[in-house]
Design a protein around this nucleic acid. Sequence first.
DNA 1: GTTAGTGTGTTATGTTATAACATGTAATGA
DNA 2: TCATTACATGTTATAACATAACACACTAAC
Lengths: 167, 167
Amino acid sequence: MKKKKKNENSSKIFLGHDHGVCFGDAITQIEDYFIKKKLQLTPLRRKVFEILIEDHKPLGAYEILEKLGKTGFSSSPPIAYRVLDFLIVHGFVHKVQGLNGFIACSNPNHSHFPTFVICRKCEKVAEVSEEKSGLKLPSPEISNFKIEKTTIELTGICSTCENAEIR
Amino acid sequence: MKKKKKNENSSKIFLGHDHGVCFGDAITQIEDYFIKKKLQLTPLRRKVFEILIEDHKPLGAYEILEKLGKTGFSSSPPIAYRVLDFLIVHGFVHKVQGLNGFIACSNPNHSHFPTFVICRKCEKVAEVSEEKSGLKLPSPEISNFKIEKTTIELTGICSTCENAEIR
DNA sequence: GTTAGTGTGTTATGTTATAACATGTAATGA
DNA sequence: TCATTACATGTTATAACATAACACACTAAC
């Protein structure tokens, strides 16, 4: 109890959390941002964001549509894609390319260039902020290029799944 | 002529090249690799690789299929996807997720974790090797995670296009 | 000469994403 | 007040991307 190995804390990027707090915080953040920017947090937009926050993992557009349908919204594809695009533009949602999925941003005010760490076995996804990822961008080599958007995804296997693997 | 600004050289990641040499080198490399690994560089596989090397930019699977069709190969989707998967596994092709496209690896023997720099305007794509990208992986934060594959894509605007932009 | 492994071909279908147009509603301002 | 606009959502149809499942040919190994 006196001393913990540093690794024990520093590596737990897939760790659980108090979801009630997380959910509430996220809603508050998006509400504040929308007011500040004079954007409309409509029922549909709110619902899509809630669906993503609730699940806390990447969902496909068609999964989102299904959930929308069950709560009385339209469930034709453009509905989801439009709202997702909007939320992405404003930094509240990211697309995880490797999974064709969408996930709520875990820290809308910070991560402009987030890294996603994806376990191919359990399919858990962790968003690691710019500061913590150890990622250094851009290099002098590409300083003549203006980066607007990054897709950084690290796929592999988390320690839990690796320990569980047979061979 | 005596002195060049360092930037002039170091930033030209989109620079042209002697394509004849590039093409020949690439074919030689893949031939050697296939012999060494006792793999079959069949006419189909060779053709797909040649198509990608020739164009030197990401092509969609269906674009490749069209080119295959014109040269007497079958052009049903699985043909392309199977060969592409094979070439990807062996490191001769990369998938550019942001464009749903496939591109020949510019340095099969080196870049295990390449970075792709993509201009959203001219759609040029440069592959930057691990060493040159300035990318540092992995961080202590994620050291408990075994990275098997990375998707690192930087989208933005290259200096040529930026200078050409009106606004 | 049967078997196993590999490569290609074919049909059908699944999955992901967008184009184009219609409708509704609120704010703006002549 | 009522045309104009900006924005949000709805709808239909289709485009674009990808894979499943099965068939067949060829080669190598036993």
